[in-house]
Simulated assay, not measured.
Amino acid sequence: MLRPILAVFEPFVLALLGTVVLASLLPARGAAVPVFDALTTAAIVLLFFLHGAKLSREALLSGARNWRLHLAVLVTSFVLFPLLGLGVSSLPMLDGPMAAGLLFLTLLPSTVQSSIAFTAIARGNVAAAVCSASFSNLLGIVATPALVAFVMSRPGASASISMESVEGIAVQLLLPFLLGHALRPWLGGFVARHKSLVSSVDRGSILLVVYTAFSAAVVEGLWSRVSGESLMLLLGACCGLLAAVLLLTFAMGCVLGFSREDSIVLLFCGSKKSLATGVPIAGLLFPAAQVGAIILPVMVFHQIQLIACAVIARLYAERAEREEAALA
């Protein structure tokens, strides 16, 4: 009974909290910003390269063919989440900008790097996670503006789609993964013998993303624009929304008869919302004066989902380790 509570004090979760505190006190500024952006990009590229070298061809093909899982992730991201968002954003205690930001949050695609990293930590189907998360993010470039125009009743809200986002996903995620997979005959053995290397890259990439994203928010005056009462309301709404989605995706995995590995993919890919995609889309769809308030729920939810999923992923990993030890 105490394991979920003690998991909150797991070193990686503490590292996440420490990273948020560090970004609040010492955010990256000036010349440090491009340095951390470059480090984050390099860590993500290395993460996907190593996972490409780790996966067998059979596992990759199996992940791509798992259409039921991919469809379940997309339905969760672009149907279930928006329906929950309509309910949460209609609560009377939320002001207009905060309610709009929460609704916008639910229309975003899944994250890519953290979804895959947590799936790997939890011993899930990494090949399927790569396919689901990448496709969700690519589809979100078109689906999110369309959903904003439809759900948020903003005539003319459709925005031109930036090819830079598509190119970024292809260059930073898919290309390293494919290159690592092509080099698997030469690197696969090395990666298998050094599992701690892949684990360190998983965790390091997430910490870098958290610090870089939160630093940018702090520099833009995050804490000067939010009262304590408003922040507590926002925290409660985000926690409730995430808890509902985690429970629903867990139940969906059971009802649809997914294996534990595939259920982990649905849990992590289906429950995430992308800060990296949400910020530029918000800048395209909303007036500049509203963007800060719109993306605040996204930033808060982003931190909460990382901490919660770190706990869940670690619990899954410990369960797998116990089962492996029992079999041995």
Rank of each mutant, 00 (worst) to 15 (best):
P145L: 12
V75D: 01
G124K: 05
D202K: 11
F250P: 02
L266F: 00
R3S: 11
L235T: 07
F286Y: 05
Y211F: 13
A38P: 02
S274G: 00
F177M: 08
R322W: 00
V35Q: 10
V73S: 13
P155G: 05
G101E: 13
P287M: 05
R319T: 12
K54W: 12
P82H: 10
A213V: 15
L14F: 01
V255H: 07
H181Q: 10
M93C: 06
V73Q: 12
Y316H: 15
C254A: 06
F268E: 05
L139P: 00
P4H: 06
G180K: 07
E318P: 07
V219D: 04
A213N: 15
L74C: 05
S274F: 03
Q113I: 04
I5V: 13
S271Y: 13
L233Q: 02
S134R: 00
R319K: 14
V33R: 03
G278S: 14
L39M: 14
A42Y: 11
L178A: 13
S263V: 00
A143K: 09
E58T: 15
F104Y: 08
E318M: 03
V171C: 07
R260F: 07
V279M: 14
L61V: 15
P287A: 01
L84F: 02
F301C: 04
R322L: 02
S162K: 10
L197E: 11
V148P: 01
R225Y: 07
L327H: 13
L50K: 06
A59F: 14
L17H: 06
A43H: 09
I295L: 11
A28W: 03
S62I: 06
L83A: 14
C239L: 09
A244H: 06
A38D: 03
G253Q: 07
L61N: 06
A216G: 09
S24H: 10
T119M: 09
I169F: 00
T144R: 07
H302S: 00
L275Q: 01
L91E: 04
A313N: 02
L86W: 12
V255Q: 08
V210A: 06
I312H: 00
A146L: 12
L138M: 10
V191L: 08
C269V: 09
P155S: 07
I295Q: 11
S230A: 11
W67A: 10
V148I: 15
I141W: 08
A313V: 07
R57A: 13
K195N: 09
L107V: 03
E261I: 07
L248N: 01
A182T: 14
A159T: 15
E167F: 08
V45D: 05
S224K: 14
V75M: 08
V75L: 11
S199N: 13
P92H: 11
V88I: 15
F268Y: 15
A317N: 12
H181G: 13
E321V: 06
